[in-house]
Design a protein around this nucleic acid. Sequence first.
DNA 1: CCACAACCTGACCAACCGGTCAAGAAAATT
DNA 2: AATTTTCTTGACCGGTTGGTCAGGTTGTGG
Lengths: 205, 205
Amino acid sequence: MAMIETLKKPSRIQRRNRKKILDAALEVFSQFGFRGATLDQIATEAGLSKPNILYYFDGKEAIYHTLLQGLMETWLDPLRALVHDGDPKAELLDYVDRKLAMSRDFPRESRLFANEILQGAPLIKDALDGELKALVDEKAALIQQWIKEGQIAPIDPHHLIFSIWSLTQHYADFDVQVRAVLGAREPFAEAGSYLKTLFTKLLTP
Amino acid sequence: MAMIETLKKPSRIQRRNRKKILDAALEVFSQFGFRGATLDQIATEAGLSKPNILYYFDGKEAIYHTLLQGLMETWLDPLRALVHDGDPKAELLDYVDRKLAMSRDFPRESRLFANEILQGAPLIKDALDGELKALVDEKAALIQQWIKEGQIAPIDPHHLIFSIWSLTQHYADFDVQVRAVLGAREPFAEAGSYLKTLFTKLLTP
DNA sequence: CCACAACCTGACCAACCGGTCAAGAAAATT
DNA sequence: AATTTTCTTGACCGGTTGGTCAGGTTGTGG
């Protein structure tokens, strides 16, 4: 039996090696994109042989697919956590903080996502049109309500969300450029206070 | 003689075919990155045979290098145009406009650049550390002066520049995602007025 | 400690990769 | 028109790619 039945409970070895493979694949895919990455690279990075990797996954695309699918969930969690639960402005600033923290702590995930979108999102186009759009529309409606209530300044909710994504992920995706320009300065600490200022000014009515 | 002497003036055919190749390469490299792109793809896109492409360029890397070198110049032009020449706030808003227009009119160039940075900028690291940093530092000093004169609000100049890059290029690099979320709405027109609002609020003391 | 399943790998394969080359076709020069 | 230069390509090459497979090794439950 060449392939693992996902129905059965995975063994200890399976869990360990699948994790090793996915971690190695994240490293390689996030740097070179799907087409630029090779199984040999992933195998070396994972410390396993190439055939052994194909014992755990159906192929290169299956690894990439698994990685991206798992990523989509955790990537949208911060936005899901945006609810009507106190001060709207503080709520949105918290969302910015959470997203910036993700850029700082999971830059590879951010870059993998960026790579996929850059290439036209061949694998997650459906998720963008469906799941993502639905979630964003829902949160945009919430923001629109806050605006109507006069709790934050009147701005386009969709573009507000875009700007939060853009500004926070920039520090992960363009890390090399940011550090080249800043020299020895620490990007993320500065970005935190800068973005707080920016969004406070933007959201204050 | 296999290679073209750049010292001699290029013939009509040379100009036409080199342009065809660079245009095709821009299309392919911007979508798949350096490693993910193939010469066959570029050849097909250009409507030329693979050996013919290698008649005009020294190899895959030479095409990529030529493309990136030419891009760096035009990509920084809008920032170079940022000078002390009237109202600082209007000056900066104009810069935002110019950058957004570039994202709208040259999305492939933006994505090529993004791809290179994502992969750690292996080819233009030197340019980032040198030319780019110098230019940004110069303009940051200019912005700092405006702040000191009280003409714009006190914010970190470097991160201000980052946020302009980030917010404008996002609409080119993440075009698929933006359009998926917005549905039938036209991104760039909306982005124009949104960003004008954002930066006006940010820069007003 | 045995038997069976799970795990691992060296050797191999067809397809594709970037790049070469000799020789022909088209332009330009005379 | 002749000739030289520029341009173009089919056939080919060594290396790499994703993937297979038979058979060996390791772990595990009885």
